[in-house]
């Protein structure tokens, strides 16, 4: 028996596995960038949301989406939607584990943030103790921030004081 998929269902299947251009270990869907695929008035619409305002990967992501759909002869308009603002809280536990295995410390939660804790979304008052960022290599909490900014807009640079490895931390946003 064969089931006929709608264009939107077919598009979801094609886009499900599409990975982030800068962090290929996780998919756009797991990151929360790929929001929706729907039938709009003018045909298929793929809704994406930017991570950081100036994330340079957004153009690449749009191209990747169109190219993936083109393999099945589908065409779509890519719609950028800002609200609600993207947050790392949308990342699934499975995606966080993939990041860790890849060598990137996954982000702490923003929504459940304790008052006074230091992270991107909650500015730290004087004397606030930031949550420990665990080393993705050895698991140690004995780590230190080397730089607020790292290899991409979404990451900061850390160093483990036990195994001495430098690593990226995916900033809570």
């Amino acid at each position: 028996m064969t089931t006929t998929l709608t264009a939107a269902e077919q598009a979801w299947q094609l886009l499900e596995g599409l990975s982030d251009p800068e962090i290929p270990v996780i998919t756009l869907r797991e990151l929360g960038i790929l929001r929706d695929v729907r039938e709009g008035a003018a045909g298929l619409e793929v809704v994406i949301t930017p991570t950081y305002s100036g994330c340079p990967a957004m153009g690449q992501i749009e191209d990747d989406v169109k190219a993936a759909l083109a393999t099945a002869g589908l065409q779509a308009t890519v719609v950028t939607q800002l609200a609600p603002a993207w947050t790392t809280d949308w990342m699934t536990d499975a995606a966080r584990e993939k990041l860790r295995a890849y060598g990137i410390a996954p982000p702490h939660a923003c929504a459940s943030e304790k008052p006074g804790a230091a992270n991107v979304v909650q500015f730290a008052a004087r004397g606030a103790k930031p949550e420990a960022v665990h080393c993705p290599q050895c698991g140690s909490a004995n780590t230190t921030e080397t730089s607020h900014f790292g290899s991409t807009a979404c990451k900061a640079l850390y160093r483990c004081l036990d195994c001495m490895e430098p690593f990226d931390y995916f900033k809570p946003y």
Partner: peptide, 15 residues
């Protein structure tokens, strides 16, 4: 919507 996004970035710039 732009403000909600930019706020997160401004906080980090302040930090």
């Amino acid at each position: 919507a732009i403000a909600a996004k930019s706020l997160k970035e401004a906080r980090y710039h302040l930090r």
